[in-house]
């Protein structure tokens, strides 16, 4: 079986996988990182979004072997080691941007990448457009959009430090 070596949330890992193993299966089943979820089988829902070398990726749409040599951040690795939450996590809680929580890890990871890639700032409409790849069935998105808007200045201020 092929071997994959990658860094996940700052820790090196080497795992044997079948050629057909998906990145999300490696994370959930081989590394026990069950924060990344699987909500569909057609790359539509975005519950499985993680960062691969700083870019948001649907982990159900990438083979584990394709991630060989990559650095991956999952929802478990977003907060600081001392437990301080990322501003996006804080704002999701503050603005009641989650209900059942199942889409939340993918939504937060997608939102972090969206905001980080747009330092000029995003309008509400641009945020809605940017979330096209992530489905939420509970919130109606209203509070997710509010949370991301509120996280923007916090993230950009932090980046400028």
């Amino acid at each position: 079986m092929p071997q994959v070596t990658l860094t996940v949330n700052g820790k090196a890992a080497t795992v044997e996988v079948e050629g057909r193993t998906l990145l999300v299966e490696l994370l959930r089943e081989k590394l026990g990182l069950t924060g990344t979820h699987v909500g569909c089988d057609t790359s539509q829902c975005g519950a499985c979004v993680v960062h691969v070398d700083g870019n948001s990726v649907k982990a159900c749409t990438m083979l584990a072997v394709q991630a060989d040599g990559s650095s991956i951040t999952t929802i478990e690795g977003l907060a600081k080691a001392d437990g301080t939450l990322h501003p996006m996590q804080e704002m999701f809680r503050e603005h009641h941007a989650l209900q059942c929580g199942f889409c939340t890890p993918g939504m937060v990871m997608a939102a972090v990448d969206l905001v980080a890639k747009n330092p000029q700032g995003l309008t509400e409409e641009q945020i809605r457009h940017g979330l096209e790849g992530n489905l939420c069935r509970c919130t109606g998105y209203h509070n997710i959009v509010k949370a991301i808007s509120a996280a923007q200045p916090l993230m950009h201020a932090k980046a400028a430090e």
Partner: peptide, 19 residues
């Protein structure tokens, strides 16, 4: 009141059946 359950959900520490 902000939700008690959110801390585990936003940190990837939820405990869903498939977990």
């Amino acid at each position: 009141v902000r939700r008690k359950e959110d801390l585990r959900f936003i940190s990837g520490r939820g405990n869903y059946t498939d977990d």
